[in-house]
C-alpha cells in the first residue's frame, strides 16, 4: 500500500523547520495563502508571511527588495501567474540581479485542469530555463520537496521549484538524500529508460509496475528532479545503458525535459530512440479534468505503459 503526500506540506514543513533553526525566512504570497497551504507556518510565524494581495509583479519585486535587505525570501503563488504575470520581475529583479529568492511555482502543469489554459502552467520550466542565474527543480514527492527546500535555502541565489496541489505517492524513504544535479534513479531496469518530471513520476511508477507484472517488461525509471544544475554526464551514462528513452512530463514539449534529453542525445551523438510524451508543441493544453488531460496526452500510467510496450515490441 502506497503512502501519498502533498508537495506543499513537504515545502511548508521544511520552511518551518529552517525558521525554527534560526534562518531569517520571509514567505511572500499574492492572496495565495490557501494555494500555498502556508497557514500552519503563518500561525507559528505571523510576521514572516507578507501578503501583497493580487499583485504578482509587486510580490516578486518586493521579494527581491527583501532579499537585498538580507532575508531569505520564498514566494508562494500559482505558477501561471508567477511565470506569466511577473515574468519581467522574475527575469530582472530575481534572476538577473541574482537576489536570494526561492520561487515556488504552485499548481504547475495542468493541476488546475478544468479551469483551463489561463490557469495552466505548461511553460514554466521552459520560461525559467531561458533565464540565467536561476536553479530549477521539480521534486516528485513530499519527502524530496522538503529536501529541495532545504537545499534551496542553503544556496545563496535564485531558485525555481515546481510544485503541485495533488496527492503524490511517496517514493522516497527517510534515507533519501536529494543532491542537486543528480538524476534520481527510482527503478533499475533494462532496455528502456523512462525519464519523468515531478508531477507525473507517480504515473510512470504505476506504468512500470503494470509493465512488470503484466508484460514482464522492466524499464528503468528516472526522476529528473534537478533540471538546473543537471549532471549531464550522469544522465548520459544512464541513457547509454539502454536502447530507448521515453520522457514524460506534464509540460509543453517545447523546452521541457524531453527537449533537454533530445539536446543531450544530439550533443553526445547517442543513437537511442527518443519518445517524448507531454503537451504537444504549439498547443494550449486541452480543457478538462486532470485525469482526462493526462489520458489525452498519454502521460497517464496507461499511456506511458502502452508507449513502452510498443517500443519494446519493435
Amino acid at each position: 500500500m502506497r503512502e501519498y503526500g502533498d508537495l506543499r506540506d513537504g515545502a511548508v514543513g521544511a520552511i518551518e523547520r529552517l525558521t525554527d533553526a534560526g534562518q531569517d525566512i520571509i514567505v511572500m504570497v499574492a492572496d495565495s495563502t490557501s494555494t500555498s497551504k502556508i497557514g500552519a507556518f503563518m500561525k507559528s510565524y505571523p510576521n514572516r508571511v507578507v501578503n501583497v494581495g493580487i499583485a504578482e509583479q509587486n510580490m516578486v519585486g518586493m521579494a527581491a527588495g527583501l532579499a537585498l535587505g538580507g532575508h531569505t525570501v520564498f514566494t508562494a503563488n500559482a505558477a501561471p501567474f508567477l511565470v506569466g504575470r511577473a515574468n519581467e520581475q522574475v527575469k530582472n529583479d530575481i534572476c538577473y540581479s541574482a537576489t536570494n529568492v526561492k520561487m515556488l511555482g504552485l499548481n504547475a502543469g495542468v493541476a488546475y485542469g478544468p479551469l483551463a489554459s489561463t490557469h495552466h502552467a505548461i511553460d514554466d520550466i521552459s520560461v525559467m530555463s531561458g533565464f540565467g542565474n536561476v536553479q530549477i527543480f521539480a521534486p516528485c514527492d513530499a519527502v524530496e520537496t522538503g529536501q529541495v527546500i532545504e537545499y534551496a535555502a542553503s544556496f545563496d541565489g535564485p531558485v525555481y521549484i515546481r510544485l503541485d496541489n495533488a496527492q503524490f505517492p511517496i517514493v522516497h524513504d527517510a534515507q533519501y538524500q536529494f543532491k542537486a544535479g543528480r538524476p534520481d534513479v527510482l527503478i533499475e531496469g533494462k532496455s528502456v529508460v523512462v525519464i519523468a518530471l515531478g508531477s507525473v513520476v507517480g504515473e510512470a511508477l504505476d506504468a512500470c509496475e503494470a509493465l512488470k507484472s503484466e508484460d514482464g517488461i522492466e524499464p528503468t525509471l528516472v526522476n529528473l528532479s534537478s533540471l538546473r544544475p543537471l549532471d549531464h554526464d550522469a544522465l548520459a551514462a544512464i541513457i547509454e545503458r539502454h536502447d530507448a528513452v521515453v520522457t514524460v512530463e506534464e509540460h509543453s514539449l517545447h523546452g521541457g525535459i524531453g527537449a533537454t534529453v533530445a539536446v543531450l542525445l544530439a550533443r553526445r551523438r547517442l543513437s537511442n530512440s527518443l519518445t517524448m510524451l507531454g503537451i504537444s508543441e504549439g498547443e494550449f493544453a486541452h480543457y478538462g479534468t486532470r485525469k482526462g488531460i493526462r489520458k489525452h496526452y498519454q502521460i497517464d500510467a496507461a499511456g506511458i505503459a502502452q508507449t513502452v510496450r510498443t517500443i519494446s515490441a519493435s
Binding site: V50, G61, M62, N92
Partner: peptide
Amino acid sequence: HGLPIAAGLAMA
C-alpha cells in the same frame, strides 16, 4: 521595477 524593489528593501 524600482518601486516594488524599494518597497521590499524599505520593509527589510
